[in-house]
C-alpha cells in the first residue's frame, strides 16, 4: 500500500510539473504543422551531397515524434 502511494504521488508530481510545458510543446507542434509547408522543405533534401544532410537534420529537430 505504501509503495502504491509513493508511486501515485510521484506520478502526480511529474504530471503537475510537466503538463503546462507539454501543452505548450504540442501546441507549438501544431503551429509548425500549419505554418511550415513540408513540401517546400522536401525540395531542399533532393540535391547536395552534404548540404541536404544538414538541412534534413535541422528540419527533423523541431518535428514531433
Amino acid at each position: 500500500m505504501n509503495d502504491i502511494t509513493t508511486i501515485s504521488i510521484e506520478m502526480w508530481r511529474i504530471l503537475l510539473d510537466s503538463s503546462p510545458y507539454i501543452i505548450l510543446g504540442i501546441l507549438a507542434a501544431g503551429g509548425i504543422k500549419i505554418f511550415v509547408n513540408q513540401q517546400i522543405i522536401v525540395r531542399h533534401l533532393r540535391y547536395g551531397r552534404y548540404r541536404s544532410v544538414f538541412k534534413a537534420a535541422l528540419f527533423g529537430i523541431p518535428l514531433p515524434l
Binding site: 510539473d17 510537466s18 510545458y21 507539454i22 510543446g25 507542434a29 509548425i32 523541431p62 518535428l63 514531433p64
Partner: peptide, 10 residues
Amino acid sequence: GVDSIAITYA
C-alpha cells in the same frame, strides 16, 4: 521535437 524540448526543460 518541440514537445520533448519543452518537457525536458520542465
